[in-house]
Amino acid sequence: MRLAKLEERENFRNIWVMAEWSSGRIQPVTLELVGAARPLADARRSEVWTVVLGTGIADRQLNELIACGSDIVLVVDDPAFTNFVDETEARVLCALIEKHRPESVLCGATTRGRALIPRVAVQTNTGLTADCTQLAIDPENGNLLQTRPAFGGNLMATIYCANFRPQMATVRPRVMSARPPDASRRGRVIRGTLPTVSAAACKRVLEVFHSSEPGVNLADARFIVAGGRGVKGKEGFNLLRRFATMVGGAVGASRATVDAGWIPYAHQVGQTGQTVQSQVYLACGISGQIQHLVGMQSCDCIIAIDKNPDTSMMKLADITVVGDLFEVLPELIRQVSIT
């Protein structure tokens, strides 16, 4: 809501984390957000609250939220949250926000979070910053300084929301670090603060499919093995898949390979695909069009394998291998399998 007077800021307290509930469990990004929220709350001498909307939530997971830094875990456990219905979750979250008045709300910049939180921000009449990579707080007034990449990572913008509360931000997975669990930490689980949750009548989830294809989840991957035109075809991607599976990674792709039908669109990295921020991005035969680079240039360590040492990707990369990927990748697979 818009503050009529800045003193009204004092009516809003605590840093909230909206838990990412999917596939029947609380996802790791939640613990990363709790880790990010802890120092912000400490600076304000306030609490970290984690809100979990799910069903059949394991106590072990709720305790883990406390061990990793939450003071309060607010749980609404209801079958209405079995599948992702934006409208139901938004309505419940808005009601909780109006009741408890948090100062800030953090949510994962996941497919669910990026659909849900803009709806909540509009309905609670407040500001939202997408895909933050850095969060700081003004200890005096609680203003959240939210830094995010813009223009495909070519610019970092710092944004704040001084006259509205709560302040809302989404944060990409794997950007913040979870704190190691401390089993002696004390916290409280509050259940069922809402008497009834009525499912939205305007939407029904009919079916849910988890991809059987390995290596499709680019957002959560620590290690991405990505291919471009140099991969030469579908068979070439099988080689990338084999290595990705060995290192527990996902498979990315350039637009050209997706358009050629070598690999499904879900793997596309770049301007018209996904923006990724993995620890390792291994680019195999990707020349590095600007539209591709903007989707991956924030990865921690970029490795490029290419016969041509002068491509844009080879210039961007932290580690380069000048060579034929059809020789280097099988050799990587061989060497990893014997160690």
């Binding site: 970092m156 704040y160 380069t320 280097v328």
Partner: peptide
């Protein structure tokens, strides 16, 4: 607009010292 851009800056520079491997695949 609830949000306001207060500062813009170039992204932190990437490590310019890149490491290159050449030679046999092995």
């Amino acid at each position: 607009s609830p949000t306001r851009v207060v500062r813009t800056a170039p992204p932190p520079p990437r490590n310019k010292e890149s490491l290159r491997f050449t030679g046999t695949a092995e």
